[in-house]
Simulated scan of single mutants.
Amino acid sequence: MLLNFKEILTATMVLFAVIDIIGSIPIIIGLREKAGHINSAKASLIAAIVMILFLFLGESILKLIGVNVNEFAVAGALILFFIALEMILGVTLFKEGDTNPDMASVFPLAFPLLAGPGSLTTLLSLRAEYEIQNIIVAIVVNIVIIYTVLKTSGKLQRFLGKNGIAVIQKVFGVILLAIAVKLFTSNIQLLFN
């Protein structure tokens, strides 16, 4: 059970790209404004638990409820699609009542934003290629980065200002929309084949 630095580095970079915590900063700031406060430790811990549990039990859980990985990814893509629409159009699709601090730390922050369909399906793909202990280290590294970004999002908000956040929100909204569409189209094709 030796750790392989190359596998850890590759898995960390792949997860970092899929989780896209930097691109999620505008969503995090928006959630913080709606909810008043986000519990960074709770959101990070829940995301870590979801990812590690899914790494071990993901395929079994999906099979048990009669859902395959592609159907799961399509459902998650739709959630990401609506979050992206909120960012781009400045509309509110998630009800204000859903954004108390405890709830916002879990949904939509920990799931599906951090431990979402993209990262969970990526974990299943990584499991086919890499040793499990290396993937767990990669998850932990990403959770530390996530926690740091969540903790400093207030400072980032002050640094960027309202206009800076608005611009970043629109740009990353389009990127998130593109990721959602890619996740949707690649998995919907596999469902119909």
Rank of each mutant, 00 (worst) to 15 (best):
V50F: 01
K151E: 11
N100I: 15
S119G: 03
L93M: 05
K34I: 14
D102C: 03
V91A: 09
L124C: 01
N142W: 04
I38P: 09
T99R: 08
E131W: 03
L113W: 07
N142C: 01
A73D: 02
K63I: 10
S105K: 13
I61M: 14
I28D: 05
I28L: 07
T122Q: 00
A115S: 11
I52N: 00
V144A: 06
I61W: 09
P117L: 01
G76P: 04
L64E: 15
I79D: 07
A77F: 01
G58M: 00
L126I: 04
G66W: 01
R127E: 10
L183C: 05
V18L: 03
K34R: 15
V106T: 10
I8W: 12
L85Y: 08
I38D: 13
A48W: 08
L177Y: 04
L123R: 04
V171C: 11
V14L: 14
P112G: 02
I8C: 04
P112H: 09
E7S: 13
P101S: 01
G173L: 08
V171S: 15
Y130M: 02
I188W: 13
L9Q: 09
I175Q: 11
M103Y: 06
P112C: 00
F111Y: 06
L177R: 05
N187W: 13
P112Q: 13
F172M: 12
S153M: 08
T99A: 15
A110H: 11
L31H: 08
I79M: 15
V181Y: 04
V106M: 03
Q169L: 06
L57E: 12
L191M: 02
I8F: 12
Q133C: 00
N70F: 02
E33P: 11
L191V: 03
V14K: 08
L93Q: 11
Q169D: 13
I79F: 10
G90R: 07
T121Q: 04
S153D: 11
V171W: 06
F111S: 07
D20I: 15
L80N: 11
F5K: 08
Q133Y: 00
V106W: 09
D20W: 13
V74W: 00
M103Q: 08
A128N: 06
A180Y: 10
V174K: 07
V137G: 08
S40L: 10
